[in-house]
Structure formats: structure tokens, C-alpha cells
Design a binder for these strands. Structure first.
Lengths: 113, 113
DNA sequence: CCCACATCGGTAGCCTTACTACCTATGAAG
DNA sequence: CTTCATAGGTAGTAAGGCTACCGATGTGGG
């Protein structure tokens, strides 16, 4: 898939991955890859700047942990990050239902639940 | 909604609107607005450049029609445009199911329909 | 008549964002 | 010692949409 399409939603993906617990950058990349079934194979040059962006925004915090003599920067979701994730979820749903209406992928809105 | 999120899918939306028949730019904007329930209120500065991009790509053709003394440039989907739309639909579905998996909006793939 | 407004098309420059292509460093395996 | 996987990072580029403009015409109100 042309990953460029992620535009604007990478942050949401990162936040959602961190929702399941703190991870370091490399592990985040692998989590994205495995949870997407290999579809999201994002390069480090995409992830690290994004993480720093999120940190600047206050949505994640990071700290260095020395594991196996390796410096790992572990990222953790903050409270604002949780809220941001909720907002991202909402706007993703809005986007996907809106675009879906045009591209014919509209998931049945009520449908049981 | 923050329209920036459309990134990369604007083209698909435009193509899908034109799928229902040729329209001029202004009418396209209104079609997007009405079919989205007002969510997609895109400015001309977004639409016109996008239409020209699509035309450059060969996905739409345009011609001037003088209506009420007003020059209207009417856009029409081409055959490649139809194919492109099909591809856009496919990649949208891939994106939405992938991102949905993370943001919890994953629509049940089989689920009756 | 004149001005304001809706219709209609368009362009220039900016900003965000992701990508490619690099670089650095360490521990383990050969 | 060299190579590879792990791990983190930066610089520069390209794409895409947005804001803010500009120009023109037809219509209706004052």
C-alpha cells in the first residue's frame, strides 16, 4: 500500500499502539507491522520524527532505559495523549464514514451493536 | 472535521462525484457538501487545483460551456479515470481496514452486507 | 443607477507530513 | 575482525491541501 496515504493518521496509529503499553521506537515499528499483518512496514525515518512530534505535543513521554547495554528510548502515553487518541479515533470515524459514503465502503452505521 | 485528513483521497472523492455525471467545479463543491451532509465544505482553492491535477493525469476531461453567459468548465470522467477510481476505492478500503484495525473502527469484513 | 452578493474560475505561497537516504553505535554470530 | 540485526537519529525532498487572494458576471435591493 502506498503509505503516503497515512497522512495525518500516523500519529493516531502510534498513539493506539502505545495504548497497549510503553514501547521503544523499534518495537513500535514491529508492533505496527505485526498488528497490520505486514501492511504497515514503516521505516525508522517515519517513526522517529513522528514520535518526537508527539512528544513535543505532549502526547507521549520518553525515557532512556539501558537494556542489554543498549540505549532504548521508551515511549509512554500521557494523559493528554489518551485524550488525543480519543479525538483521533473520533475524527477517523468521521473521515472514514464520510469518505466511505463516496467510495462505497460505508459500514452500516446502526447494524445491531 | 479537519479537512487536512483527506490527504490523498481528495482525488478519489472528486472522481466518485464525477462518476454520477459531468459537473463543473462549483457544482462539484456543492455535490461534495450535500452528499457528505455538510462535512466536506471544501474551498475552491482546494478543488480547482485538484481538478487540474486530475486532468493532467488524464482522469478527467473538461470543456467550456457558456451557460447564462457564464463560462463553466465542465469536467467529465474518462475511461482511465474510471479505472483510477476503482483503484482508489481499493486502496481506500485497504487503508480504512488497516487503520480501522488500530483505531477500533474495523467494520466486520463479511457480516452479511 | 450602483453596490453587494452569490456564482464561477483561478493562482501563489505556505505548511504539514511522510519518505528516501543517510549516519552512528552496540551486541552477537561467524 | 567483519557482518548483521537491533536501535536511534537527521537532512533534505516531494506531495498535497489550505489560506488568501484576484477577476469576472448576473441579480436584486436601496
Amino acid at each position: 500500500m502506498k503509505s503516503q496515504a497515512l497522512h495525518g493518521h500516523l500519529d493516531a496509529l502510534l498513539l493506539s499502539v502505545l495504548e497497549g503499553g510503553a514501547l521503544h521506537g523499534y518495537a513500535i515499528i514491529e508492533a505496527l507491522k505485526s498488528r497490520s499483518g505486514g501492511t504497515l512496514n514503516l521505516p525508522t525515518g517515519t517513526i522517529y520524527p513522528a514520535l518526537r512530534r508527539l512528544e513535543r505535543a505532549g502526547y507521549v513521554e520518553s525515557e532512556w532505559s539501558t537494556v542489554n547495554g543498549r540505549e532504548r528510548r521508551t515511549y509512554r502515553l500521557t494523559a493528554p495523549g489518551h485524550r488525543a487518541l480519543a479525538g483521533e479515533r473520533a475524527s477517523w470515524q468521521e473521515l472514514s464514514s464520510t469518505v466511505g459514503r463516496f467510495l462505497g465502503t460505508e459500514p452500516p452505521p446502526a447494524a445491531a451493536t
